[in-house]
Amino acid sequence: MGIQFKQVNFSYTGMQKGYYEAIKDISLSIESKNEFITLVGQTGSGKSTLAQHMNALVFPTSGTLEIFGKKVTSKRDRHIKYNDIRQKVGLVFQFPEYQLFEETVEKDIMFGPLNFHKTEEEAKVLAKKALQMVGLNDNYLNRNPFNLSGGEKKRVSIAGILALDPEVLVLDEPTSGLDPKGKRQLMDLFKSIQEETGKSIIVITHDMDLVYEYAKRVLVLDKGNLVFDGSPEVLFRMNDLSKFHLDYPQTIRVLKGINERFNLSIDIYQKTVHDATAAIKRGLNS
């Protein structure tokens, strides 16, 4: 089960550009439980395109994709209800403005469940539960989603997907535009959702600090190619990340600077400020 990419290619046929290979020969397997993946790469590297494959919003140009046992290829198969895949794999788009449309938060969150033939009552219960999961209390149910702050809108849009109770949750740049506090709160939220429900979570982000601190597994895209699939520990131990157009996390950069400046050999691979401090103390004492 889960999601398997087998040599998936995808090309956009654009208006003027002709056609454009957005992702190339991607082979990849994502478990249906307990993953915490971050997907990184510079703008235009194909992250969103890859994400949209995961719930069959776009179909591979060639190659095979298997999503919870259902084969997705370039041809639409009339026996497959692609909509069911979208219930199993929930995808949250980058801008909440793309999806909020109802006059109350509750109705907006109910939209998904109702599309999947839940009754009005069931949908209400799901909406309430989803809202709690994203850390908003019941007072929000009757509020107008358009009067919320950016961070709150984002949470409501995530609740709109969580209400489908997907097994895998994919989020396209959820932290972009938020201030550092907002970013961290949201990542903490994903982490707690992951730990409490066991759902697999995939987050697209540009923030290496967050990648290093939160991810169990990192996928790196570069110009449509999957160039890395492994743990953040392995990724950030690589020597030349600029070839993937990536930076190192701040903690690593600071510790590396200290080592060079003071000729020390502190273990620079520390995820948090706390760990970094502890490592420095150990390094100075020895």
């Binding site: 719930n55 919003l57 979208r86 929930g90 788009f93 999806q99 998904g112 599309n115 709109g160 489908l164």
Partner: peptide, 16 residues
């Protein structure tokens, strides 16, 4: 382009 993305975003919520 945006209309296309909005359509995908709602399709993600089961709008067929």
């Amino acid at each position: 382009d945006e209309a296309n993305k909005i359509m995908l975003a709602q399709a993600s919520r089961g709008a067929d």
